[in-house]
Design a protein around this nucleic acid. Structure first.
Lengths: 279, 279
DNA sequence: GCATGATTGCACGTACCACGCAAGACTCTG
DNA sequence: CAGAGTCTTGCGTGGTACGTGCAATCATGC
């Protein structure tokens, strides 16, 4: 069409109706974006063309807005529009959980593969067990008992999973529930498999944590489950950052990443009751 | 890597391992679709081209699969791929939280103002109590006991608040914990104030919920707290959407929005032990 | 009142998508 | 064991949405 047609359409009448009343002032950009975000949050889904019509801007502008909101993490684009996006924002979570994301994810994936249909499992609090929980989404006929808010978040929408939380007081730093109430709840439950996290791990001393509340709970968890798995990326092995310890008595399996050195693994391999797995 | 490789990749080796054995038979269509569905549920997001490569079929086939799954409601298409669609299809919490947001927020704000420093409060599950929790962020010297995941999320990072969760099984639709474990935990706790939500509210019958587990827990909560507040926007008053009821025996306070009609409020005002507040 | 920055509409090239068609694979039946 | 029917897949075509550069317009601050 007219290449010189740069005539401002700004004051032209709106395409649909409202012939007499010209638009006094449209929504400003930030307000419009906020409105779009709210529409998506409440309606769940929006369509680009409809937004363009109802807000009286071109689809290009809507696309730009949606791109902005997407980058911001509020929403997710679909083919002709956008939708709400609560649990798609992985990069933020990944960044926050910080170190060794890939390793934790590999460990979590391997552990998830150990869990069979019909199993009841206990998931400790922590980012690694959170990754494990992530890989359980979509599974069915599974009972998950957890004291971790991360795992809880991952599985909150997983309809196929029976999700049981322990009671307790929230440790904000570790996003997990601890204390007498958590232990009380555990006395009413057992599980097929237990997956424990660790701030530090020593072959003789066991699991190292920042507080006795945490170690006490881990000890109890280990006793309430059949098989015990300790998920710890290689940066944790041989470390003792704190002074509270949870000794591991029965047989258990150490799951770590392939970045672990032989020096790190040797003390664990020397133990007869410990199985060592690197992924 | 194949540049213009339109050669049938049918017999190319599988990407991982099994070098010698040529692919005897790829995944069957239903299996492939189930696998795609699970990948989307666990990973949150997939890309058409990657799926095509990893499953060794053309993008067309993947698109067809995704179209099928979309129609089935399992997933949602995005521009170059697909993502999980848990809340778009289902009228669970997403839509419900969309209703009367402003009212719920006003009610939550008012309730938050009732809570003093040093208080211990019980927060029921639900969106309205979630708003209440939202307005407690930043407060200090406060103990919050809750059975709701929404409140838990709001206060997970609130360092100043001692946050205690009840144990229990998660009801995915209401995002709250219920069951014997929740009740067990409550027997170890009391609070100064209790804030209950409601799916429906009747002056005589009490609080209406979808399950007896919920009503049983609400009853117990009411008994474990000093003052009892029921937070219910005006759309809930006089409604009985379900058949499970939690009667309210002692004195309590109804907190609703100013949209409530006199007809709705009259039955409650007639009760001597009930205080009615509109915000 | 003027300059600067943000915002918007338009145009263009690219990528993705839906549909139809024909060949191949699998299953069921006689 | 053979043949027919059904399902599935790969490819081609037309259509649509997408993202971005560019120029004009509007809002804001001095």
């Amino acid at each position: 069409m007219g290449p010189a047609s740069s005539r401002t359409p700004r004051t032209t009448a709106a395409p649909a109706g409202a012939a007499g009343a010209e638009d006094p002032r449209r929504l400003r950009a930030p307000d419009r974006r906020a409105l779009i975000a709210r529409m998506i949050l409440t309606d769940g889904t929006v369509v680009v063309d409809e937004l363009a019509r109802s807000l009286d801007v071109t689809p290009s502008t809507i696309r730009r807005d949606l791109a902005l909101l997407t980058e911001q993490g509020t929403i997710a684009r679909t083919y002709g529009g956008a939708m709400s996006a609560s649990h798609t924002a992985e990069p933020t979570l990944g960044q926050r959980s910080g170190l060794a994301v890939a390793e934790k994810d590999r460990i979590g994936r391997w552990a998830a593969a150990r869990i069979a249909q019909g199993d009841t499992v206990i998931l400790d609090a922590g980012t690694t067990t959170g990754r494990l929980a992530h890989h359980l989404r979509g599974r069915t006929e599974l009972t998950v008992i957890t004291s971790g808010l991360t795992a809880l978040r991952e599985l909150a929408e997983a309809d196929g999973i029976e999700l049981i939380t322990l009671a307790g007081t929230l440790r904000h730093v570790s996003q997990g529930f601890v204390g007498p109430l958590a232990e009380l709840t555990l006395t009413r439950l057992t599980a097929d498999k237990v997956f424990l996290g660790a701030d530090g791990l020593d072959a003789i001393l066991g699991i190292c944590e920042a507080s006795l509340q945490q170690t006490a709970l881990k000890e109890l968890m280990a006793r309430r489950g059949g098989q015990v798995y300790v998920l710890a990326d290689s940066s944790k092995l041989g470390q003792s950052p704190f002074t509270a310890w949870a000794p591991l008595t029965g047989p258990w399996t150490l799951v770590t990443d392939s970045g672990a050195t032989d020096d790190q693994l040797a003390p664990f391999r020397a133990l007869p009751e410990v199985d060592v797995v690197t992924v």
